[in-house]
Design a protein around this nucleic acid. Structure first.
Lengths: 205, 205
DNA sequence: TGAGGAATGTAACCAAAGTCACCAGTTTGC
DNA sequence: GCAAACTGGTGACTTTGGTTACATTCCTCA
């Protein structure tokens, strides 16, 4: 595995030293819940390897917020941690993942001592905000087939593979609709030659 | 008018002194465009009095992001200013407004010297993010009549009046739909006794 | 290996909301 | 003072996607 410095090379050296000293490296298996709503946050995660899904629940429906990718942290944990407020979100590993856990009290010190770490979080916020905006645009102006196709492309980019093993049910919940509609729409995309379905899941063509 | 300290009483004294020295107080008439897409930001606004609408455009359609209320700043300007990137949004005064304009280079210094100002912006980000999340939830799970009614209630809360002089076209654009649909839906709300329409606009009952 | 649950396919129906076409009333500017 | 432009009202039609109710296929594991 790469060293922490390699993942976080945009941080100043002295901050990296601190992070190395106080950050906790931890391995998680796939599909492990690492954070649930209501939980208080003492450690803010930073993803080094793997993929973590962050989402809320709202009357039994899921709403996908974002995926953590390599080198990214979780703004919802960050804010909840700083304000000592309960988490509003759930997080679950999608694959086996390595997280660097930053103690909140240390993080607070670092934010003062190393202003560049603020840039890091501001950037993250900006990124997540932009992603929600895009979601809203899609919701308002795109039909489901387009949204579904975008969703698959994005998943594929993330995974780095055109073969996605997703259940219709899961797709439906992440797009805020129901299984039948996804079946129907995937069939349509298949007719249009954009995807192929097999027992393994969906393949993007 | 109140003094700057009264608006920003959660800031430390020494920071307030700086803000007073370097911030630029400026008055804007109603319906004045104060920021357009593509513009570079040298001054980050902080609203003291009035109301400012922040929105993006996307292929001739508007997408409302948020309204600045008293004591609030604009995260989109903030980020664009810090990164020296062009603005992605438009801003326009809704009523006559007083803005305190903070020079970006000073702001950068303050972020380092007075960490509490970071909390202010993190809080704002968090707030705006939560608002978008709510919008998404509404889009996914509420029908237009419900969304429209919420929209009117929120407008009314902001304005502090039950009488709203809004054009159907404007409502439509802020909710991402078209005039006819708003006419129809407003009629429905009127039938249900939730609002009343007159030549002045819409009144919430 | 075969029974049962999970995943998917599909037809028929419905409601919400987008679209189109046009009318009528109101405001504005010349 | 009147034409042009803006604003709202409305009916008819279409499309999208949510719902219901099963049928079919696949996968697992006892």
């Amino acid at each position: 595995m790469k060293s922490i410095e390699e993942y976080l090379d945009h941080f100043p050296k002295d901050l990296l030293k601190e992070i190395e000293e106080f950050g906790i490296l931890k391995d998680f298996p796939a599909n492990m819940e690492i954070l649930r709503e209501g939980q208080f946050i003492k450690l803010v995660p930073l993803l080094l390897e793997g993929s973590v899904k962050v989402f809320t629940r709202y009357e039994d429906r899921e709403l996908l917020l974002y995926y953590l990718e390599t080198g990214e942290s979780c703004i919802m944990s960050f804010t909840a941690g700083l304000k000592n407020a309960p988490s509003k979100v759930f997080a679950i590993t999608e694959e086996e993942s390595v997280l660097l856990l930053l103690p909140v009290d240390k993080l607070k010190q670092w934010l003062k001592a190393f202003p560049s770490i603020n840039d890091f979080f501001y950037n993250l916020y900006d990124q997540r905000y932009a992603a929600l905006l895009e979601t809203i645009n899609h919701l308002l102006y795109n039909h489901l087939d387009q949204r579904l196709y975008n969703y698959l492309l994005e998943k594929s980019r993330q995974k780095g593979s055109k073969q996605l093993n997703l259940r219709h049910r899961q797709i439906a919940s992440e797009l805020g609709t129901v299984r039948e509609v996804i079946s129907r729409t995937l069939k349509k995309l298949e007719m249009e030659g954009k995807v192929r379905q097999s027992s393994l899941g969906v393949e993007i063509l």
